[in-house]
Amino acid sequence: MTEVTIWSGWIGGIAIGTYALFQFYLTGNPLGVSSAFTDACSLVTPGPFFKKNRQENGFSWRIWFVLGIPLGGFIAALTSPGPLVASFSLGPLYDSVLPAVPWVRSLVLTFGGVLLGLGSRMAGGCTSGHSITGLGLLNPPSLLASIGFFVGGILIVQILFNVLG
């Protein structure tokens, strides 16, 4: 697994907070990731929900934005001291609790992704939209959503490590 350079939490927070402000005041579009997936799905999926979204957003700035994110991860890996390694490992903790059989592990990660997709649409946003942007706006529904994110995360990780593990 690629070992990337990691800053202290508070420096990372200042960097990401500054970035979110930069994007907002420069473009007027608040930081958010998950809606891009709806926009991308809308380009190829029939039905009134997707049609409405396609007419409103089209090939949106969000799609461009999420296409750039892997590029940033790639640059971050290249500028870290260690080599860039392509691997299905998740690191020692997750590797110790997730199934070792590759296809079973893929199913677990896919299922996690399904929950992320469904959950972010039901909640109206993900970690970036609700927790970075929304909490920055002191928006009560975003605080509620952020608490929900943590409740779900604590629930499943405690079960994974302390009940099943």
Partner: peptide
């Protein structure tokens, strides 16, 4: 929705971004 998201977050060790 946010709790469902959180379960996916902890299970996959990642969020969308």
């Amino acid at each position: 929705g946010s709790i469902i998201f959180g379960i996916g977050w902890g299970l996959a060790g990642a969020c969308p971004g």
